[in-house]
Design a binder for these strands. Structure first.
Length: 495
RNA sequence: GGCCCCAUCGUCUAGUCAGGCCUAGGACACCAGGUUUUCAUCCUGGCGACGGGGGUUCGAAUCCCCCUGGGGUCACCA
């Protein structure tokens, strides 16, 4: 255990980063960072049919969004490269030749259909053990000749019979497999490119990977990789197979249940810190009572022993709680910055707050205080960044949508008159809004001899078109004197 | 079906390795109150679990076995 900690996340660029993959990456990252180790990103692009450049970029972007920085890998470089398996073919070649020479790889000429038939028949019999390739015991010389003659074949790993394979797993303890249950898996495709199980074991050794932390679906691949490592006298890394993330229906997380790509959540305005926290909470806990934590706190406590064994349901309610929690605890200035893109995207232009004095200030400078006031006003009312444009629409448009309850408040007896008087009183004030708004409005209620509710409700309705929303004091500031007076008076004319 | 993994509130989990400190703790959700000029926030309280059966033990959520249930895997994908 004196070897330096080196872990890798090894996505294949065949789609966007999956939620499960994101969490696996997060655990790897956390383990590396918590143990002064290296976090390596290795691209498993052995399947030329499905790889895409777009996928790679989207995966990298997703990881950056989550804050998972890698020490070695694409765009980072490193001494153990290349970090694309497609560029490591030379390093696999020696292994392939050795396997053929030593006999633990053999040429299999059976077609996929023939193999499938074998598998089906075996399954039909409900039997233990495995099917055997008809080529398994072919004379090597004959096999070589057939291959030389151009006959298509794959290279299979000759799994020894009667052995026990022990997987030492940091999460599951010791897991035993009988080699008889492990099929002769394809190590090299007919096109000459080695498969995942082959590259993985060689690369993990070549890159001095100390711990393989990956999803539980890989547990059954592990004996294959261990067998190969033994055949080649490679070092076998420590393993940690993390539980799966299940959809809210208890089944494997799928598109049917909801969004499965991290990108979906980025696009929908989820705060990255909330997603990070949420993902870390799925199958891991710091202690018996900590729910909300940042990355530093995670690193201070991260330990493979604290990863649970059972699968975890993707609980959107909890995710939403964390999102709202993070948003309301974000400093207004910071929150304003994060909200800005969503306003832009919706085509909403923040007015400058003090247009008269703006003078030499650039527009964006003078908008800053307005944006911060906006952020602060909505801080406790937002579940996602993307909710802002809708909720704050009344601040940007001259047309105010009046909902039913607001209309009622406007139609209440005396409401119109009250609004008019309010507008007048407001107009008399030297300051807008009045210095002590709360005292001012209370005073007005007293003067007009009505309860606060009688005053506040129609005011709110006239200004925002709804009875909910930010504090009136904030709305006043956000709207500005002119628009406030206009709406107060406009509402009384309307009906 | 074979093989493998797993099993505490509806959900995420603490507790399980080193059995008593657990009449099982926290969080989300839900319900009921309270604070508040609206909504929200915030505060208080409530609801709510050791899947079943056998052992071992003075004592088991914790250890063992069986059953049941759930999940994964069975590609020239990773």
């Amino acid at each position: 255990m004196t070897d330096p900690v080196r872990v890798r996340f090894a996505p294949s660029p065949t789609g966007r980063l999956h939620i499960g993959g994101a969490r696996t990456a997060l655990f790897n990252w956390a383990f590396a960072r918590a143990n002064d180790g290296a976090f390596i990103l290795r691209v498993e692009d052995t399947d030329s049919e499905r790889n895409s450049e777009d996928s790679l970029h989207s995966i990298l972007a997703s990881m950056r969004w989550l804050g998972l920085d890698w020490d070695e890998g694409p765009e980072a470089g490193g001494a153990a490269g290349p970090y694309f398996q497609s560029e490591r073919r030379d390093s696999y070649q020696a292994g392939i030749e050795r396997g053929l020479a030593e006999g633990w790889l053999y040429r299999c000429f059976a077609t996929s259909d023939e193999i499938q038939a074998l598998r089906d028949a075996h399954r039909e019999q409900k039997a233990h053990g495995c099917w055997a390739s008809p080529s398994r015991d072919l004379d090597p010389a004959t096999a070589e000749r057939r291959a030389a003659d151009g006959e298509s074949c794959v290279l299979r790993f000759r799994v020894p019979l009667g052995e026990e394979i022990l997987v030492r797993d940091h999460i599951r303890g010791e897991v035993r497999f009988r080699s008889d249950e492990v099929e002769d898996w394809v190590a090299v495709r007919s096109n000459g490119m080695p498969t995942y199980n082959f590259c993985c074991a060689l690369d993990d050794d070549a890159m001095r990977i100390s711990h393989v932390i990956r999803g539980e679906e890989h547990l059954v691949n592990t004996p294959k990789q261990i067998l190969l490592a033994q055949a080649m006298s490679l070092r076998v890394p420590d393993f940690a197979h993390v539980p799966l993330i299940l959809g809210e229906d208890g089944k494997k997380l799928s598109k049917r249940t909801g969004d499965t790509a991290l990108g979906d959540y980025i696009d929908k305005g989820y705060p990255p810190e909330a997603m990070f926290n949420f993902l870390a909470l799925l199958g891991f806990s710091i202690d018996d009572k900590t729910t909300v934590f940042n990355r530093e706190e995670l690193l201070a406590h991260f330990d493979l022993k604290r990863i649970s064994k059972g699968g975890a349901l993707f609980d959107t309610a909890k995710l939403h709680f964390l999102c709202a929690e993070y948003i309301r605890h974000t400093e207004p200035a910071e929150l304003a910055q994060r909200l800005q893109p969503w306003l832009d995207q919706a085509g909403l232009q923040p007015p400058s707050m003090d247009s008269e004095q703006a003078g030499s200030d650039s527009a964006s400078t003078s908008r800053k205080p307005w944006l911060e006031t906006l952020a602060n006003a909505f801080r406790e009312r937002l579940g996602l960044y993307s909710e802002l444009p809708d909720k704050a629409a009344f601040l940007f448009s001259d047309h105010v949508e009046i909902d039913d309850k607001a209309q009622k408040a406007l139609d209440a007896e005396g409401a119109q008159d009250l609004l008019l008087r309010l507008a007048e009183a407001l107009e008399q004030e030297p300051l807008f809004p009045p210095a002590d708004w709360s005292a001012w409005i209370k005073n007005q209620a007293a003067i007009m001899e009505v309860g606060m509710g009688k005053l506040m409700k129609p005011m709110r309705a006239a200004l925002s078109g709804t009875l909910g929303g930010p504090e009136l004091a904030d709305i006043l500031v956000l709207l500005g004197r002119d628009r406030v007076l206009q709406r107060l008076r406009g509402a009384s004319v309307r009906s």
